[in-house]
Amino acid sequence: MIEYTKDIILNSNLTLRRNIEGLDFPATMTLEDSERVIDIFRNIYGEKLVLLEDLDETFLNKLISSFALSEDYDDRSIKMAVVIEDDYVLTINDRDHVAINIMDFNMDMKKALDKSRQVEEDLDRIIDFAFSPEYGYLTSDARNTGSGLEIFVETFLFGLVGSYEAYFGLKQALINDGIYIGSESPLDIKNDIKGLYILKNIGNYRKDFIKYVRKFEEVLDTLVRNERRFRRDYQALNGIKDEEIEDRIDLIVSNLSMGLLKNLDIILKALYELKKYRALDYETKLSSNEIDYLIFNLSKKKYKDNRDEERYQFLRSYMEGR
């Protein structure tokens, strides 16, 4: 792993999406058809195919956070599965009949693309994928129709993108390169930029995807290197002393531990701030894994509103337990 990406590239996934000719997409397919799709892939992969219902929550959460599985996967009454290989994961009957996922590729998108295409070619010898001479490969999301390529890179850019204006300036510049940047923070982006962003490819109509992926790699490398420079100079640029940051960390951890924060926006703002200081090599009491665990679980859609009592109870129980 290239060290300069540490704490900047958090997750990455390159996916090729395909559907089987003659069957409805998963959003509208019947239980019986979903079982037919499962049987097709079980005949290819045997015992390597595992139904989602047989996986534990930790692994399912890993698939969700890595963009390999939809967060609302359990809202549908169809059979879904995964195939776990050493260098790729297939998700079956999620948004499309099959998604070939190359996760945690860090900066090497070209290698991830080559691997996904190799897997797709092997499957194509066995399965007749839905294809239109005019539009290309057909997918449930029209934006992916064409090549079926989907690239997600989760980045933490709190130094490079420190304001609303900087965010939209960067967003416009990336669109020109066929890359979309969106805020992943559950908070209102107009009020507070938190620094957690998703980079995604735009458009599947390109004829030369190798050239496009190379360009994506170059843009990502530039973003990472500039972010590293901004982090190095963070205190000087903002006129902040060590003691001020240490006091702020103590206050945040104390508020979380004493149960003084109940509003989701306020809780997440505090956790993202700890995440930032952690990336700057400050001791934050909570480890990086603990911060990410809390952000993931507190943001789940199962909670009813911004001040859901169950969310507050979960946080309080966790802080007391540790």
Rank of each mutant, 00 (worst) to 15 (best):
L149I: 15
L199W: 01
K110H: 11
F314V: 04
I249P: 04
I252G: 05
R18K: 14
V37D: 02
D114G: 09
K190G: 11
N201W: 10
M1Q: 11
S65C: 04
L174Q: 02
Y4W: 09
Y272L: 00
G146S: 07
I9P: 04
R316S: 14
Y303M: 08
N306W: 06
D265I: 01
D128I: 14
E227N: 14
N191G: 15
N204M: 09
E227Q: 12
R225S: 15
V83P: 00
S288V: 14
G321R: 07
K301F: 13
K262W: 02
N289T: 08
N11Y: 12
S65F: 10
S288Q: 15
R42Y: 06
E243M: 05
D86K: 15
K302G: 00
V253L: 03
L256E: 03
L294N: 06
V37N: 06
M107E: 12
A99V: 01
L149W: 07
D56V: 10
I8T: 11
D96E: 09
D54F: 10
I267S: 01
R228S: 13
L223K: 03
V224R: 03
K275C: 03
S66T: 13
V119R: 06
Y167M: 09
V82M: 05
I44D: 09
E273G: 04
S257T: 14
E165S: 13
F314M: 14
N144S: 13
K304M: 09
F67T: 01
I126G: 02
L63T: 07
G162R: 11
E320V: 13
G239K: 03
I266Q: 09
Y45G: 07
N144W: 08
F158Q: 01
R307S: 10
G148S: 05
R229E: 15
A130E: 14
V161D: 06
S257H: 08
D86G: 01
E3D: 14
L315N: 05
I193W: 03
V161E: 07
D305P: 01
D108T: 09
L187A: 09
Y234M: 09
E218S: 13
M107L: 15
L138N: 01
R143V: 00
Y45N: 09
D87T: 12
P26G: 10
R36H: 10
R214F: 08
I198R: 15
L220E: 06
E165P: 00
I38D: 11
L251E: 14
L174V: 03
A68L: 09
E243K: 10
I40F: 07
E217T: 08
I175V: 13
N93M: 06
Y272Q: 03
Y205I: 15
L187P: 01
Y167W: 02
